[in-house]
């Protein structure tokens, strides 16, 4: 099998080339939480979470800090803003939003009865250098919104 790309090594080498004196420290945990699905998948409402931004970049507050944002899955947005994210801009493209936020594909499986439904909104979470901001500020807001939507489980698809 082809060896998978080692993104941590690539990122470290790239930032060293930019002249940053210390390497990025990736999160690592000894224990991993686990919540079993509380109902059959065919009855579960699925919430969707992306790392993309709204097309108008309207999720910035007055200080310019990016915030968790949400939008309706119907009508599904044709495009989202992804230029600020670290994806492989030489090898692919993100003009098909469904390639990174699978609204239609999950709706298809809801129509087929594999899942009970799709939450009415999807949620966007900023990618941050500060792991603390993600853990203490953004993640709780995503949870609040998923609960408000009646989601039983979440599908998260970072670019």
């Amino acid at each position: 099998m082809t060896e998978t790309v080692r993104y941590m090594d690539r990122t470290r080498d790239y930032y060293r080339a930019l002249g940053y004196p210390s390497d990025y420290v990736w999160s690592r945990f000894d224990t991993v939480p686990f919540a079993p699905l509380a109902k059959p998948l065919s009855q579960a409402r699925i919430g969707l979470v992306t790392t993309a931004s709204p097309p108008d970049l309207g999720n910035r507050d007055a200080s310019g800090t990016r915030q968790v944002w949400s939008d309706a899955i119907s009508p599904a947005p044709a495009k989202l803003f992804t230029d600020n994210l670290a994806w492989d801009k030489e090898s692919t493209r993100t003009d098909d939003r469904a390639s990174f936020l699978p609204i239609e594909a999950v709706q298809h499986w809801a129509a087929e009865g594999l899942v009970g439904g799709v939450a009415a909104r999807f949620h966007g979470v900023p990618t941050e250098y500060s792991q603390r901001k993600t853990m203490e500020f953004d993640a709780p807001r995503v949870l609040e919104r998923l609960r408000a939507d009646g989601a039983d489980a979440a599908l998260l698809s970072p670019l």
């Binding site: 999160s27 945990f29 991993v32 939480p33 686990f34 919540a35 079993p36 699905l37 509380a38 979470v49 790392t51 979470v125 990618t127 792991q131 993600t134 853990m135 953004d138 993640a139 709780p140 995503v142 949870l143 998923l146 609960r147 989601a151 039983d152 489980a153 979440a154 599908l155 998260l156 698809s157 970072p158």
Partner: peptide, 15 residues
């Protein structure tokens, strides 16, 4: 996003 998944799971939301 891994950090978000961990927070959701720790609070009972499967991901």
């Amino acid at each position: 996003m891994s950090l978000v998944a961990r927070h959701l799971e720790a609070n009972g939301m499967p991901t």
